[in-house]
């Protein structure tokens, strides 16, 4: 189901200024553009890891950030699943403990069912007892996505989820992402600089360049 997403804020970091004014209703919004265009900064602002200087961030009916309204929900209360490009799997925990980290200490029946679904969707069962250093690139990616999903997030933020993988693996991971979109119906903001990926995943594309949106629409523009 498409969700209204308001990303209307600016963020200054040294010489770099990010300006984004988007109000979209989509299942998967892609942020598309070259490196240094500010894509990751958008994700980290949504996750609450960076504070914009002004503006509003709203997902569905929930306001995460609003300078004028004095709202700045701390990261641990935002309920936004973030899969960073470096994945940041916790090195001192095995796969199971990584995946369950955000699941909360009192798993109810609904949660358990959701967890079952995530594990089978991402085919993680054979990996559960492994240490994170024993995983291949594609396996690490799936564990990081599962970890973000077990919190039942309002929104899933994916930062270049396929970039670190070789083309064979990409073709294998992409269907997992499509299943999350179609079966779990978790809305996503998907950062990528790969056209094929964006076309496969997104129903709204914001093209970024040097911190500004150059184009915004239901599909990628011809460039």
């Amino acid at each position: 189901m498409p969700v209204p997403i308001t990303l209307d804020f600016s963020l200054r970091q040294g010489d770099f200024t990010l300006e984004i004014h988007e109000q979209v209703e989509a299942r998967v919004v892609a942020l598309f553009g070259p490196s240094g265009s500010g894509k990751t900064s958008v994700l980290e602002s949504i996750a609450g890891l960076r504070s914009p200087d002004r503006g509003v961030i709203r997902i569905g009916s929930r306001t995460l950030y609003d300078v004028e309204g004095g709202v700045d929900v701390p990261p641990h209360e935002r309920n936004v699943g973030y899969v960073p490009q470096d994945l940041a799997l916790f090195p001192h925990m095995n796969v199971t403990r990584n995946i369950l980290y955000g699941a909360g200490s009192t798993p109810d029946v609904g949660r358990a069912a959701a967890l079952e679904q995530i594990l089978s969707l991402l085919e993680l069962r054979p990996l559960l007892e492994r240490g994170v250093s024993d995983l291949s690139g594609g396996e690490r990616q799936r564990v990081a996505i599962a970890r973000a999903l077990t919190t039942s997030p309002l929104l899933l933020l994916l930062d270049e989820p396929l970039t670190a993988l070789d083309s064979g693996l990409r073709a294998r991971i992409l269907p997992y992402l499509e299943r999350i979109r179609d079966e779990l119906a978790t809305p996503m903001v998907y950062v990528s600089h790969d056209e094929a990926e964006v076309c496969a995943m997104a129903d709204w594309v914001v093209e970024l360049e040097l911190g500004r949106a150059t184009r915004s629409g239901p599909r990628l523009g011809d460039s």
């Binding site: 890891l49 701390p74 990261p75 641990h76 935002r78 973030y82 470096d86 940041a88 916790f90």
Partner: peptide, 13 residues
């Protein structure tokens, strides 16, 4: 990074 990601997973400080 690990501390930040843990926070996004709902962990209090």
């Amino acid at each position: 990074r690990y501390e930040e990601i843990a926070a996004t997973l709902g962990a209090s400080p």
